[in-house]
Design a protein around this nucleic acid. Structure first.
Lengths: 233, 233
DNA sequence: TCCTGTGAATTCGTTCACAGCC
DNA sequence: GGCTGTGAACGAATTCACAGGA
């Protein structure tokens, strides 16, 4: 088993499983079936089994998975057994919120630096950290051994910030800026775009409205049909 | 053409194209090829052409696409020609940041209400709006004709908030809470999970480190091989 | 000639269904 | 009997490659 090269789609689900498992463990349960874990994670059981099979054979036939053991294996696979140093660039509304968000540190992501170019922000204390000037990014990344950069600057500045981060030796970027980012070869990039998510919802929202009028039309037609002499009792 | 039922993956890219097109228009360009748009949107040109073909035949062979016209068509398709009322539930760090985030209003998403259960927050002014009590959600959703709910509460409260929103008649939910949300049949759901994104980056980060040691190992082995007598000149 | 629009080919991801083990 | 692990079947998404119109 243990076939290397886990599909991207599976990797993206592992953190979800991990969370479901931690919840399960907190409830004092020590064994889960793929079915139970599927329910907790909001997917189907075949997907769970397939995804977990990429990591190895960690389950027991006829029984299920040991919760603690699986938590350990997934954590290891995700690289969560070590700590990663991150920096947040752009201490505006969102940067502030991210700096204060407890969920990062909880999972081993240490916020090692807050950076901004705005001199009125530099020197401020945010979430217990001094805001430093982005000009010093190369030195800070090296000193703090930062590998993950979080971009929370306005869209038009995202690319230059990304370039500087790449140049400074960062190897992963999480981009919150509403802009398409080009990164150096070999740097991982993920993006979170708030307004894109709303626009996707808007599409389905509109389609729902369109379908509703169609359905009303259909309903009306059905009534008409029902009114025809050959309608069934 | 205009085949209905646009694939989900294409829908998710339309907002990205839209942003790239708006940028292009702001630079005073009136025509784009699929190739140019692909570069601006960070995808390949075949994808652009295929995706746009689902909307209709809006390009001109040998020329490209009219930027303004395409902006109009995509906006219409995404339902952005009308305004959507939203509410934000949970006015903590993130809720604050979201309320102050300009990107929503810009694209026709009006924040109609801020809701919280914490009585110390109710009555506060945030981003020019009174924070209201979540208990009144049914009335507020009806009065303001809110169709999209944004959840920014702590994980353990997300499900009950989601249930109340669904019961109040909301048809789309954007979930920022770190929890798997179950929604009523027919309600659209998207989630944004900050720490999951970091965990995905961590996976690739760790793999990179692992690969590096392998590559070093390989390099060493190659040197050894090269030192063998039968090595080529 | 240039670039779109699209069938066909391919790759990727999901689900089925059951053999194998507890 | 119950549940995992996994080939095989299926379906979705991407990419290729080129016919066809400007």
């Amino acid at each position: 088993m243990a076939a290397r090269q886990i599909p991207e789609a599976s990797v993206a689900r592992l953190p979800v499983y991990l969370r479901a498992l931690v919840d399960t463990a907190e409830r004092g349960t020590h064994t889960v079936s793929s079915e139970a874990l599927a329910t907790a994670a909001g997917v189907n059981s075949a997907k769970i089994r397939k995804d977990l099979s990429y990591l190895g054979s960690y389950g027991t036939r006829g029984v299920g998975y040991d919760v603690e053991y699986l938590i350990h294996q997934i954590s290891r696979e995700l690289g969560l057994t070590q700590d990663w140093a991150t920096c947040i660039v752009g201490i505006g509304n969102l940067g502030h919120a991210l700096a204060n968000y407890g969920g990062f540190a909880e999972r081993g992501f240490r916020i090692a630096a807050l950076l901004d170019t705005d001199t009125s922000k530099v020197g401020q204390m945010v979430a217990g950290l001094d805001v430093l000037h982005f000009d010093d990014v190369e030195r800070i990344v090296k000193e703090e051994e930062i590998s993950i950069g979080i971009i929370a600057v306005p869209g038009p500045h995202a690319q230059e910030v990304g370039d500087r981060l790449c140049a400074a030796g960062i190897t992963s970027i999480l981009n919150f800026a509403p802009a398409v980012l080009q990164v150096a070869e070999g740097v991982s990039l993920r993006k979170v775009d708030l307004s894109i998510e709303l626009q996707i919802l808007s599409f389905y929202e509109q389609r729902r409205v369109a379908e509703e009028s169609v359905r009303h039309g259909t309903a009306r037609r059905r009534l008409e049909e029902a009114a025809l002499p050959h309608a069934e009792a």
